[in-house]
Simulated scan of single mutants.
Amino acid sequence: MATETPSPAQKLIGDVAPKLVQLTDDVLFGDVWKRAGLSPRDRSLITVATLTALYRTGQLPSHLRLALVNGVTADELVEAITHLAFYAGWPNAMTAATALKEVLAEQPATEQPTTAHAG
């Protein structure tokens, strides 16, 4: 008998809200995120921007991690967050930058994206 690895949503709230987990796994990540109209990379960038703009700090770190997995670079995330400071508010951008710093610190040194900027 094969056991499935629990999804992130299952681990987080599976014991409290199983239907929400099913919708998250099957509809959001199983359908919406798989649609051909946008790449996972673009969807990640849009999601990070939206979470930053709406100050949805609880979901932001996991989506920053997913963005890195989906090919958004650390430099691009920094630029997006900096750009958002002027449209979504300075505190939102500062919080997002802090979350990104924490996410990048979790990465093994061999996997850490560079954040060097041309001067």
Rank of each mutant, 00 (worst) to 15 (best):
M1T: 11
E4N: 14
E4P: 07
T5R: 01
T5Y: 01
S7K: 14
P8Q: 01
P8W: 00
A9P: 03
A9L: 01
Q10I: 10
K11P: 03
L12F: 13
L12V: 08
G14W: 10
D15M: 08
D15N: 15
A17V: 02
K19Q: 11
K19I: 11
L20H: 06
Q22G: 02
Q22H: 09
L23T: 15
L23Q: 13
L23M: 12
T24S: 02
T24E: 02
T24I: 00
D25S: 08
D25C: 10
D26F: 05
D26H: 07
L28F: 09
F29K: 06
F29Q: 07
F29P: 15
F29R: 07
G30N: 09
D31Q: 14
D31C: 07
V32E: 00
K34Y: 02
K34W: 00
A36N: 12
A36V: 11
L38V: 04
S39C: 02
R41C: 01
R41A: 03
D42L: 11
R43K: 06
R43L: 05
R43Q: 02
R43A: 02
S44G: 10
S44R: 04
S44L: 06
L45H: 05
T47H: 14
T47D: 10
T47C: 07
V48N: 01
V48Y: 00
T50E: 00
T52A: 12
A53N: 12
A53S: 14
A53I: 03
L54E: 11
L54K: 05
L54S: 09
Y55S: 15
R56C: 08
T57L: 09
P61M: 04
P61L: 07
P61G: 05
S62C: 07
L64E: 10
L66W: 00
N70S: 05
N70Q: 11
G71S: 09
T73F: 06
A74L: 03
D75Y: 07
D75P: 04
D75I: 15
E76V: 12
E76G: 15
L77Q: 13
V78T: 15
A80S: 11
A80C: 15
I81K: 00
I81F: 00
T82K: 04
A85L: 01
Y87E: 06
A88H: 03
A88W: 01
G89E: 04
W90R: 10
P91Y: 03
A93H: 12
A93T: 08
M94I: 11
M94E: 09
T95Q: 14
A96L: 02
A96W: 08
A97R: 12
T98Q: 10
L100F: 07
L100Y: 03
K101S: 10
E102Y: 02
L104P: 10
A105L: 08
A105D: 10
A105T: 09
Q107N: 10
P108G: 08
T110Y: 08
T110D: 14
T110M: 05
E111T: 13
E111M: 14
Q112E: 03
Q112D: 03
Q112Y: 06
Q112S: 08
P113D: 15
T114F: 03
A116H: 14
H117R: 15
H117C: 05
A118I: 13
A118N: 07
A118Q: 11
G119C: 12
